[in-house]
Structure formats: C-alpha cells, structure tokens
C-alpha cells in the first residue's frame, strides 16, 4: 500500500476537497440561523440569506437616502485608495531603505537596529501620539498602515539582499561595476519579486490597520461602515461587507502574484524547480 504522504488526490478530488470546508461552514451557518430565526423572525445576529440580499441591494445598488451615494462603492473606493497608498508607500520605503541597508554596511550599522526596534512597537499602542503627529484625516489612516507594515517589509528586504550570494557581488566587481551599478543591476532585479512576495504576505496586516484606522475616526470606508452599523447589530450589512473585504483581499493578492509572474518569470521558475 502507498504511504499516506505519497497519495495525491486527482484534479476533481482536489476541487471537491477544497470546496468542502466552505460548504460545511455555509450549512452550519444556515442551521444556526434557521434555529434563531424560528425563535425570533427578526433576529439580528444570524440573519437569513434573503436579508443579506436586501442589505446588498440597499448598500450597493440603491442611492443612499441622505447623501445620494451608492454606499458600498463609495466605501470600497476610499478604502482601496487608502490601502494602496499605504501599501505603495511602504513598499517604496522598503525597497529603498532595505536595499541600501543590505548593500552598504555603513547604512546598515545605524539603521538596522533602529528599524528592528521600530518594527516591534505595536502601532495601536501609540495611537494618541500618531493623532498628534498626523492629525485625524486621510494622512493618519495611510500612515497607520505604513507604520504598521513598512518596518517589517524593510527588514525582510534587507534580509533578502544579504542572502544574495557574495560570489555575484564579487563577480560584478571584477567586471568593473561600482556600488551604484551593483545596486541597480544585481540587487534591484533580484529583490523586486521577493518584495512583491512579502507585500502579499503583509496584505492581511495592512487590512487590519486600515480597518482599525477607519474605526477610530472616519466619514466613509469599509471599516467605518462595519463599526457604524455594529451600533445597531446590523449583521445583515456586516457579513456581506466581511465577505466583500475577503474577496477584495484575495483579488489584490492574485493581482500581485500575476504581476510578479509576468515581470519576473525566472524567479517563479526557480521556485518551481526547487519545489519539484
């Protein structure tokens, strides 16, 4: 008999097994929701799927009574704008500081311990300081994301830069490259796909900080809406929003992976050979 670790499910079996936990969750939800709705048809905690449909219709396809905006799209637009600004800024910082730290020992010596220390401060613990420095507007929300994930990204890029084999750097030098050329031609192209990979990993944290920022002070956004309607336990709005956020996060991750594969096919080929 084949050992368990050597038994691989076929294509169809893999699909079915993959979908199974989702279906189980759905069934569990339906059972629990039906039980509560049988007791109180207006139960707010676990609403029925028809109330979800109603809430989605209301939030996404009906203009708001007071402002005339389509709330879901307005929330999505402002949240995605903040998120991409925060992620973009963090990635840029990570790229510049991370590569410099990795390449130049005289940069690394003062900066590396400092950034390590910064990355260990929980941003939520210093909120009042952030308010005073960055105010309460859009800047504060973007900065919370940057402070939350940039130090982690910088440390990661620095580590990856240091992992680049010394032979490559020596070879480039024997071919006559100066520091700038080594950074731009040797380090930069090899760091980029790795940076994209760690940005993908930090997406979860970025969403967390975004939603926290929007919960503290905001006038629109996905996190703002969730915390607002929580005031009257409108789970029929909250749960579709959560699913929507999950979907957006998944799409962002997918797009980043596609970009990485398109721009750096050699990197992914490398990983593939390592995996096989």
């Amino acid at each position: 008999m084949k050992k368990l670790i050597n038994r691989v499910p076929g294509r169809t079996a893999r699909w079915i097994l993959g979908v199974l936990p989702f279906v189980l969750c759905l069934v569990l939800y339906l059972a629990a929701s039906n039980a509560r709705l049988a007791e109180n048809e207006n139960d707010k905690l676990l609403p029925s799927f028809s109330s979800f449909a109603g809430a989605i219709e209301r939030m996404a396809f009906t203009p708001d009574k007071r402002s005339g905006n389509y709330l879901l799209w307005q929330d999505t637009a402002s949240s995605l704008w903040r998120l991409s600004l925060g992620l973009g800024l963090s990635a840029l910082l990570a790229l510049v500081i991370g590569i410099l730290n990795g390449a130049i020992p005289y940069m690394r010596a003062p900066l590396s311990p400092f950034i390590t220390a910064i990355s260990l401060i929980p941003p939520m613990a210093i909120l009042p300081i952030l308010f005073i420095v960055f105010g309460l507007g859009e800047l504060a929300k973007v900065m919370l994301i940057v402070i939350g994930i940039a130090p982690f990204l910088i440390r990661d890029v620095q580590q990856r830069a240091l992992e680049i084999p010394a032979e490559q750097l020596i070879k480039a030098q024997t071919l006559g490259a100066n520091t700038w050329q080594i950074i731009v031609r040797v380090l930069f192209p090899q760091i980029m796909p790795r940076l994209l990979a760690s940005v993908r990993l930090s997406l979860g944290a970025a969403w967390l900080f975004l939603i926290a920022a929007e919960a503290i002070a905001a006038t629109e956004g996905l996190g703002y809406r969730i915390f607002l309607v929580r005031r009257y336990l409108a789970m029929d709005v909250i749960l579709p929003y959560v699913v929507w956020i999950t979907l957006l996060a998944f799409l962002l991750d997918y797009v980043l992976r596609k970009i990485s594969r398109m721009c750096y096919p050699w990197f992914h080929a490398q990983i593939q050979t390592a995996e096989n």
Binding site: L127, F131, L136, A215, I216, A217, A218, T219, F227
Partner: peptide, 13 residues
Amino acid sequence: VNTSDADLVAAFN
C-alpha cells in the same frame, strides 16, 4: 465624523 469614544480625548488635541 464618526470617532471612537476611546480616542475622542486624544483626538481633541
């Protein structure tokens, strides 16, 4: 502007 009560005093600064 919806502001969390826990952060209101800090925000006022």
